[in-house]
């Protein structure tokens, strides 16, 4: 199996990244992977073994919808679209994530005497 670069991802964040990517515009599986890679400047590479189960899971939970569309180079591909529920979920997860990261940042930046 290919080296799993996204295994470094914090558990559950892949879902959030997918939701965020799709909040920008509907994409197919490959597009999602590339978009995450681009935005993260190559820090996160999503492989098929993680991406597709995640897509199926999010779709099953009603956070995504999908439809087959023609791609820019005239192929048929399954596009994923963020649903209303997915939008809410993304908002909530983003809030939680920000709260957590700022908390972690504070802890990491802490020095004795400042507490």
């Amino acid at each position: 199996m290919a080296p799993d670069k996204n295994s470094g991802l914090v558990q559950g964040t892949l879902d959030m990244l997918i939701l965020k990517t799709l909040a920008l515009e509907p994409l197919h599986g490959y597009g999602i992977g590339i978009r995450i890679e681009q935005i993260s400047k190559g820090v996160f590479q999503v492989n098929a073994g993680s991406l597709f189960p995640a897509l199926r899971r999010l779709e099953r939970a009603g956070l995504l919808k999908s439809e087959w569309r023609d791609t820019e180079n005239n192929r048929r591909a399954k596009y994923y679209i963020l649903s209303e529920a997915g939008r809410k979920q993304l908002k909530q997860e983003t809030r939680e994530w920000e709260a957590q990261t700022s908390a972690i940042a504070r802890i990491l930046a802490a020095r004795l005497g400042e507490i």
Binding site: A2, F52, R56
Partner: peptide, 18 residues
């Protein structure tokens, strides 16, 4: 092929979702 790995394994993981 190397990047994606075993196509069957990927499919199996997708199927196991439901």
């Amino acid at each position: 092929r190397l990047e994606i790995g075993s196509e069957d394994a990927v499919k199996e993981r997708v199927r196991e979702v439901g």
